[in-house]
Design a protein around this nucleic acid. Structure first.
Length: 262
DNA sequence: CGTGTTTGACCGGCGC
DNA sequence: GCGCCGGTCAAACACG
């Protein structure tokens, strides 16, 4: 079975060629046709997290001072994060590979409190996407009680502020293992059996300090071979493999982390 | 002993 | 107001 390919024009003069992996263990290959850079490979989950959530500031800041041509290219690309996101999205949508599908939320804003709690395991891809993209401000979030103490009111305000919605997307893949290696290190903090499903939902948090990214992992009710991974938040750091390389020069580290950015 | 997992309790939002 | 339910906490536990 040959990999499906797609070419997406990220911006004028730069075309990427992608190969979508045929199983959940292989990686997407990026080749920059209009540059002399060698092809890059990375795991789709890593791509999506870094592409979807990468801002031009955090990727670009390191990259601009880096001697790594890949990171400089990444900085260039990250100046058009939406296009890059569209590219990755289009690629994964267009593939006929049955192992991969995803649904995403492209807008950012205050977190809703209703739809986030729906059982996506029993939802279709379409309804998952609709739910994710239909989040709106819940007016109750900003309401503070009239007869609360100042301290309590402050707590309420803190809570309201914390209700800022993190970007999230869910990703469905056919896999025997529940937790796919996406390059980041996770700690499990809960497991719950949700209604009308036989399989429990697991909750994970990124182990990195000051990183509040979470993910949920569950099996699709209708098809237990499918794993639904829902990410919430955006990593403010490189994947955990790189931690061992902190003693190395920046340029070296940049090169090592390149495959996770692009 | 440090780190990660398990699991019952608890909390808060939502619908009725 | 109350009950349901998803999400989180944290103590106990397992393991290297």
């Amino acid at each position: 079975m040959l990999p499906s390919t797609a070419e997406i024009s990220l911006r004028e003069g730069l075309v990427e060629s992608h190969e979508v992996p045929m199983d959940q263990t292989s990686h997407i290959r990026f080749s920059f046709q209009s540059s002399s850079l060698p092809p890059l490979t990375c795991h789709p989950l890593g791509i999506i997290q870094n592409t979807l959530f990468a801002s031009s500031t955090d990727v670009g800041a390191e990259a601009s001072s880096s001697s790594s041509p890949h990171l400089k290219e990444a900085a260039l690309l990250s100046s058009v994060p939406l296009r890059a996101f569209e590219a990755a999205s289009t690629l994964l949508r267009s593939t006929t590979n049955p192992c991969w599908s995803w649904s995403e939320e492209t807008t950012r804003g205050p977190r809703a409190t209703v739809d986030t709690q729906k059982n996506i395991g029993s939802m279709s891809d379409k309804s998952i996407h609709e739910n994710l993209s239909n989040y709106t401000v819940n007016p109750k979030i900003n309401r503070v009680g009239n007869n609360l103490s100042v301290g309590a009111m402050r707590m309420k305000k803190v809570k309201a502020r914390r209700k800022v919605r993190e970007p999230r997307f869910c990703f469905k893949t056919m896999s025997e293992v529940d937790v796919l290696d996406d390059g980041y290190k996770w700690r499990k903090y809960g497991q719950k059996v949700v209604k009308n499903t036989q399989h429990p939902r697991s909750y994970y948090r990124c182990t990195q300090d000051n990183c509040r990214v979470k993910k949920r992992v569950e099996r699709l009710a209708e098809d237990p071979r499918m794993v639904i991974t829902t990410y919430e938040g955006r990593h403010a750091h490189s994947p955990s493999h790189d931690e061992d390389d902190q003693s190395q020069p920046l340029s070296m580290r940049s090169q090592l982390s390149t495959s996770f950015f692009w």
